[in-house]
Amino acid sequence: MNVLEILAYPPILRGALVLIVAGTLFPLVGVFVLRLNLITLRFALMHSSLLGASIALAIGASPLVIGIGANMLLVLIVSAVGARSESNAGHLTTFFMVFTVGLAFAILYRFDVPARESLGLLWGNIFALTPLDAILTVIFALLVLLFVVLLFPHITAVLYDRETAFTTGIEDRTIYLLILIVVGLTITLVMGLIGALLLDAVLILPALIAGFGSRSTRGLFLRAALWGAAISTTGFVSALWIDIPVSSGVTLVGALALGLTAGYTHLANRWRTR
């Protein structure tokens, strides 16, 4: 059975379309994570999603809804504390990063959640998306695009330097909070697509690769989206071709692209300085 024949199955085609749309647009969020140094917060949000999903599995509710609720609560708490002290916000984020995952596993154990469902939270399943899940994910990805396009000058100012943005009369705290909310929602959704363990392939790797050689902020966002599209599509097709999980395919292609780009940039810089 070739790739085209496999794509004739609706769940596979649906998964492919969602992955390519999300893979193209969610790296825009990866730019926020890298530039605003939200790596610790990203872990805390992943763990908080896991906690939300654990609670949902234990009580028979929607993991997506509870996960989003848990993440929004975390974003609001961290943002409120961060407005007073960045260092306290950092400590609080680390606390939540550790506490939420501990509580999640305690809940999974105490409520006898089946191991298969628990592990599903970690690796996700793109082919298990319902038509409603797919539509919601695509709509949210388009909203992320709209957010970046409409607020691009403000976002550029905040990513460049928050004090400069503030002294220019920009509501930098509001823009920052909106960015955190977008990051929180994206992480919850991406975990449902490809799972927590492989989230970086869709969110971070394309944004990281785009950083090599970009000279403008506009170019950085554009390159991140293009790299995301290329990695998602190539990863998906490769996974079907050689019969490995899609999440592994996307991650391996992303890691390979990062390695090759970093290596090429290093060699090109050495060549120029000779």
């Binding site: 000058p153 990513l159 460049y160 902020t217």
Partner: peptide
């Protein structure tokens, strides 16, 4: 952070 001079100056126009 990749940002051009035109983009930095443009922040002043927001």
């Amino acid at each position: 952070f990749p940002i051009t001079v035109a983009e930095v100056v443009g922040i002043g126009c927001i």
